[in-house]
Amino acid sequence: MASIHLQNIVKRYGAFTGVQHMSLDIQDEEFLVLLGPSGCGKTTTMRMIAGLETPTEGNIVIGGEVVNEIDARDRDVAMVFQGYALYPNMSIYENIRFPLRMRGVPAAEHDRRIRQAADMVELGSFLDRKPGALSGGQRQRVALARALVNEPRVLLLDEPLGALDLKLREAMQDELKALQQRLGITFVFVTHDQHEALSMADSLAVFNEGRIAQIGTPEDIYARPRTRFVADFVGSSNVLPPDVTRALGGPAHWASLRPESLRLTFGGPVTGTVTALRYLGAGSRVSVQIAGAELAAFVPAGQPLPEPGASVGLGFDMAALHVMEGA
């Protein structure tokens, strides 16, 4: 149980700067998601919290203590890795036991705690198998049990669900969220999947090129992106250049407009030509050419769809047009 503060962190690799003057406050028992494209510095940030990388500048404070000089093994921070990183030569039981042995937990307690951790992730019947004999989802659970067995203050998860198929991934998302609420551990979760980020986060930090582009609640970031990058990366928003914003009745500034906020009308305030249709299951995405820009509108299933080349009107609430502060 601990809060984490990153104070003006810089990480350089030779001439390349991976993380640039980053400050980040993570509250105790918070579920923070770090979201961003590959190479944006989110994993590096997480590895610095874990102690696997040392910041070039700045301080990392965990639970009120500057931990820059403290080795990863002594930070009481557990981590779940993208590739699970289970020890291939040890059984599942031994894998989960490893952190207990390393931290000098009395041997008499091992069995009880291993079984408790295994039950928490519903792994009880696999304890004597080797990691090679388990499926991806089961390995994921082992990695989680191993990370949680020592009841760490902070759990770091580096794209832990990336290798799972969609259905399993959604189930694990629910489980992780429930687990975090039950245990009250601070979770820091790295992903490049915006749906995963939006559905799991208490607080969401969007990374771009080694900086935090925006941080806030998922609702806030989805509805009020501060920059074009955030609007574009979180969900599939229409990013409007100043002249298009003006043509739609807003100020001459960059703005974002979510496809689901747009309605197709017949002869609305603005009209355009349908250029493409894409079927998405729950509805269709209709691309409309308007004022020199292409906007996407989401039409729920069951509603009539225009033909490509047809002329349609677009309607929306002015409140849905979000004018961005940054460029």
């Binding site: 590895r47 874990a50 990863a72 390393m102 191993r146």
Partner: peptide, 14 residues
Amino acid sequence: PKELEDAARTDGAG
């Protein structure tokens, strides 16, 4: 994989 060592390190191994 380097990850194995990283995992062991965060698990508390020298």
